[in-house]
Nucleic acid binder design. Structure first.
Lengths: 200, 200, 200, 200
DNA sequence: TATGAATGAGGTTTCATTCAT
DNA sequence: CATGAATGAAACCTCATTCAT
């Protein structure tokens, strides 16, 4: 069935990535065999390899969507006119995380991606590092805004604050995925105690 | 009457675990072959398999020491007479983390352990879950103490606060291991802004 | 009434064979994938398979032209009125070989064809055997003529002489292709020492 | 069965090489699967790969013995006190060739090795080229001796003569392997016509 | 008790060929 | 007629584990 539309190709790619996502979320990168991906996607070996040159390529193609969208949401949210309080930001983000943590949600891969990045030759892990660094920059932007708004003392080290606030997210992801006993509201309430918004 | 001393057996086990630790930290659980462990430990295949029944057994034997000692330190620290401030606790813990994150430090395996636990059948992951849950219980204990000391409002949801505070640690570990640009002091300073200690 | 001209069909076949020739000369029969042939010929898989039923068919279609023309040239040359001396014959043939040994020359396939014939079921290799046998018959014809002309003793075993003379060619081909330090003149000069022509 | 003798290891290597030799001679390098080698050798995949890192390594390990011993025989023969005539040298060498051309004889691989060398990146083919060049050097040595002995004219181009004489061997190998109708005596008789020894 | 050679299932990937469009 | 996406068998190789010595 030659001469297929661009759209068809994209659909095939998605078909593979969705299948791989599911497999990886269930069994992990390594325990998932390419055969698993073939079966789950309903495609043949040759077909899959027409779209991705190797298993690694599939894995890396799933890395970007893991953290990218989260970052965009954060960027949009902290730049609204009415700057949200830390608790509000955290509630929004953790809700986003929960929404993307379903059996086929990209965030289910996050811990695996972290582990992978730690173990990969430096070059290969760059996208992961940049993804994390990019997210943290947004938190820095937000920390500065907090200082401007007088929510934290004028002499606050915004960088340090950003590192700490960013640090909350992996902790939420882990607790959510592993213990499954933390809700966005829980977490936001906890953060509310730590970081109040506008002082009355 | 065993042919070899108990001590000898323990030394052998350590020899294997140390070698495996190093290999796993360098290449990850999956990319590390048993041959790597044989070579690194200077032992033969048969010798290693006399002490551990499988590769998995070695991996799981390394999981407990990953988080266990950290928990003990936290327990000791928050139970001192002069309750430390949150920033002090975080500084102490992150220092501990840094100290255990060297090339052969157990904490270098943490992200891999998280990833493993997510992907393993539920039963197998229980130790990891318990380890995390146990750590969080200490944070709950500490949150309650904070409330008692009046560091946080009386109506504070201690459970939520514990979840949030605990959540900081994975974030520090990740930033430290992946970006390597966060010091315990940075982090503590950030937390200080969030969670003050005794009110003046 | 065919839809396309005979000429068109022939042109297509040539297009494929030329592309395959080049690929085979560069990478060998086995390392050349059909995809290589598709790309080099600028044709699609389906198109190529319309003209040749299989990769093997393409290979065998290239075998005949490898040695055939050489044979015709030899036939023509030794049958001229003024019988050429052995050195002259060799010079002519080796020149022909050099001319056909360019990057896309059929003779670059010769060693591969020999190897193939040795390994193929007997039936399949018949064309190669016949090609070689046919060439050697011409040498026999020439050896007999040499004897008639008194260039070699009357009791010369023409068959043995033919086998020896024929044997020179593969040696030249190999040296030329692999070492690339033998010219037709070199070789002819060497042969001149071995086999003089008309005695003064 | 650890702690095996050096001899045992060597026997294993031979076992693999012999099996591979046979397979390669029967089906060619490419049509021979590693599974064929496992089966023929009676060894398992893992066992074979303990001795050779790849199929290529096995192939190249078979290349040296293809031409090496022939060269040694030639060296010894032409350096005897009583220099043999060309026909005698050829008879000796072709006998050697025949002896090594059985179903499991290394010379059955010669044409495949030639083909391989033509198609391999330059570096990989160096051993083949050197093997051929080394053989030809011996012929040069012999050609010079012929000139010294007055068997050929004083102004003979020894280099050219060496190239021509060497050229006879591949031709014999091919005729012997492919047509199987040439005996060493045939060939020597043919050469005798071409190149006489001591003039009466 | 220690050794390390051996096993063999299973992993990823390739590629000649087909056939719906 | 042409296209090129799809097939799927089979290739090479790895590696956790065993067990004869």
């Amino acid at each position: 069935m030659p001469r297929v539309s661009e759209e068809h190709l994209e659909r095939r790619r998605r078909q593979i990535l969705d299948a791989a996502q599911l497999c990886f979320a269930r069994k992990g990168f390594n325990a998932t065999s390419m055969q698993d991906v073939f079966t789950e996607s309903g495609m043949s070996a040759g077909a899959v390899y027409r779209y991705f040159a190797s298993k690694d390529q599939i894995i890396w193609a799933l890395v970007a969507p893991t953290l990218g969208p989260l970052r965009e949401r954060l960027a949009a949210y902290i730049r609204t006119e009415q700057t949200p309080t830390p608790a509000e930001v955290i509630r929004m983000l953790t809700r986003e995380i929960v929404a993307r943590s379903g059996p086929d949600g990209p965030l289910r891969l996050a811990p695996q991606v972290w582990a992978l990045a730690l173990v990969q030759p430096d070059a290969a892990a760059i996208p992961v590092r940049e993804s994390i660094a990019g997210m943290r920059e947004l938190w820095l932007e937000y920390a500065i805004r907090m200082r401007e708004l007088g929510w934290v003392p004028d002499d606050t080290d915004a960088d340090a604050l950003a590192k700490a606030m960013f640090g909350l997210l992996p902790g939420f992801i882990l607790q959510h995925l592993l213990l499954n006993d933390v809700t966005p509201d829980d977490f936001a309430r906890g953060v509310e105690v730590m970081l109040p918004g506008p002082r009355p």
